[in-house]
Amino acid sequence: MIDNQAVRDMVSRVKDEIARMPHDCILDFDRIPIQDMNGPITVFSRRDMKDAAQRLMKSYKLIPERDIESDKPGMKGRVITILKRAARKSLRFYIEPICEQQTELNHLFACGFRQFTLAFTDMRPDIAKMDDHEDRIIRLEKLAKVNRARQGK
């Protein structure tokens, strides 16, 4: 029969092993901590990011021609409205390709942002690993510099 001490020993052994592992950061399922280089940690709500992505997906499309009316009352207002609509229609050949281009750009951005929010949880461990690699490269560069200096002597 094992005793409590054996279980505690096993847990502390596992804790030590984890401490030695590269920090494979796991995110809180609702909060996403993002740390700038040496800066403060900003915590974003996963839900907020997803809401923003959804809003973007809904509103990225530009409409080249909108229904317009004049604020002026009576006949004058009606004439202005007709003229504005005519002007819009006549400019459509110019505006529409710009809107399409912008819509495409917005679409790409919205999709990219959505992908980012979805994939972010999986990216964090990679970011942590990249940080590790960067540290190692800096250390190796310093070592190489020292070695070069020694060889020079």
Binding site: M1, I2, A6, M10, V11, V14, I18, D24, I26
Partner: peptide, 27 residues
Amino acid sequence: DKQPELVAHVTKALMDDFGMRTGIIER
């Protein structure tokens, strides 16, 4: 501590250690 890595690795350690696992079940 309920750090996800700890929970997961303790479970894996128990999976790999039949004696420990059966000892815990006995207790």
